[in-house]
């Protein structure tokens, strides 16, 4: 019996040490990447290429999801608000929920599962097939050449994707409530414009998306770079990217919201 307890405690200790090591490796990796970003910034076409893969190819899922989320919000909001006779406030509801919360969070979650997992798998496979080692032997630093451009492309793409998500979502809400149900168009927009503040709502939403973009792509590139160079290693890393970055998005969202909107009406 005592032997089993000792084994159990040892298991816990092993996990803790392992995760602290991992955290250390991740921070070290992140600092290295930032230090070496200058090289990839000077060759911006590398980043443009990656924006194509992370940003442009994520467009369809972002736009379609945004449209549907906005339409559902409009429908649900209208159903509830019309009981109180204030269905013209549905524009406010749709816009505020999208700009403050749903736009950044849902777009980041979609981005993590679409682009984040692709980044991890790609870097992991490059490692498994010795492409990174080959690059190293060619005197080209893989962090500067492969990792940093993908990171910056993700950081640049994310705010644009979230903005498109929100804009399309509001359009979806407009379609359902104004065009289909027949809420007054003038009050839809004017109530929205009265309630949505540029500085507080939109700028804070954009700040959130930037933070999420950094978190998701940093996790994705690290998991790829740190993946064991085997098929199981890469698939495990891909799964971890999606899980870790989703949790990171939701956790960070709570912290940011608490700082940004606390004490506000």
């Amino acid at each position: 019996m005592p032997r089993r307890i000792v084994l159990g405690i040892r298991g816990v200790g092993h996990r803790v040490i392992e995760s602290v090591w991992r955290l250390g490796r991740a921070s070290h990796f992140f600092m290295l990447m930032l230090l070496k970003s200058g090289i990839s910034m000077r060759r911006f076409h590398l980043i443009i290429r990656e924006i194509y893969f992370t940003g442009v190819l994520s467009l369809i899922i972002i736009v379609v999801s945004g449209l549907f989320v906005g339409m559902v919000l409009g429908l649900q909001g209208y159903e509830t608000l019309q009981k109180y006779g204030s269905e013209s406030a549905v524009g406010t509801l749709v816009a505020l929920s999208l700009v403050r919360e749903l736009g950044p969070v849902v777009a980041a979650l979609l981005f993590a599962s679409r682009a984040g997992s692709a980044i991890t798998a790609e870097i992991g496979l490059m490692k498994a097939t010795e492409q990174l080692a080959a690059m190293e032997m060619m005197a080209v630093d893989p962090i500067a050449r492969v990792v940093a451009p993908r990171f910056w492309a993700g950081v640049i793409s994310m705010p644009f994707l979230a903005a498109m998500f929100s804009a399309v979502g509001i359009f979806g809400g407009y379609l359902v409530t104004v065009v289909l149900i027949g809420v007054d168009e003038g009050s839809f927009w004017s109530q929205m414009q009265n309630a949505v503040d540029f500085r507080y709502d939109i700028v804070n939403g954009v700040i959130k998306t930037c933070v999420f973009g950094v978190a998701v792509t940093a996790i994705a590139v690290f998991e790829g770079y740190d993946a064991p160079p085997t098929a199981e290693g890469v698939s495990g890393a891909t799964t971890r990217t999606v899980v870790t970055s989703s949790l990171a998005i939701l956790g960070l969202d709570f912290v940011l919201t608490a700082f940004m909107f606390r004490g506000m009406s």
Partner: peptide
């Protein structure tokens, strides 16, 4: 600098896919 003078052929080529 030295590695620019040497190169290595990996087992399965390791071409950039």
């Amino acid at each position: 600098q030295m590695r620019r003078k040497m190169s290595m052929l990996f087992q399965f080529g390791a071409l950039f896919t």
